[in-house]
Amino acid sequence: MIEFIKVSKHYKLSSGDYRTILDEISFKFPEHKNIGILGMNGAGKSTLLRLIAGSEPPDSGRIIRTGRFSWPLGFGGGFNNNLSGEENLRFVCRIYNADLHQVLDYVREFSELGGALTEPMRTYSNGMRARLAFGLSLAIEFDVYLIDEVMAVGDPVFRKKSKAAFEARRQTASLILVSHDMRTIRDYSDVIIILNNYELSIFEDVEAGIKVYESLAGVKR
């Protein structure tokens, strides 16, 4: 469960101006549903995900979380590029108090990275990173998985595998997903949340949500 109570978030840009992401928003996210988050470029979708995860505190207001939330799985931070995939995995296991051997076995099987696991992560492609991140977070078993754009990478076989793995977790876990790829959004989401004008609006019907988003995108263009 996650609830925002009067949450505001701003950023100071290097020009000195402020960019507002959320302005005193109170919002209750639907439970046990896969949520697709849509918004224009720069609206702050990734920041919203970081707020949900707790990677970043809000400027004001409160965020109430119950259950285990994953870190935002994305291309950005989270891994040290000079360390190997396996060393990064060890670190993440330790901070989440997860069983190292169990996780390692699962990730080996799921990611199919093979020998690359012991190579420094700077040699990894985006697809390989996503495979490691997915495998790792699936092995740790979160209640809510936060996914930032990375769903669409990788070959069709791996996409299918991820989908099956998340599908298998549906009883116990849900997704909150940011993507520009409407196919991914349709594939995974039960509801749509649109971040626009510093506000969140929810659409129980995915197609209706996508329609609104596309009309917003049309207007902006």
Partner: peptide, 10 residues
């Protein structure tokens, strides 16, 4: 350490 702040507990 900035990239590792992705993990909320860090």
């Amino acid at each position: 350490s900035a990239p590792l702040l992705t993990y909320p507990q860090v």
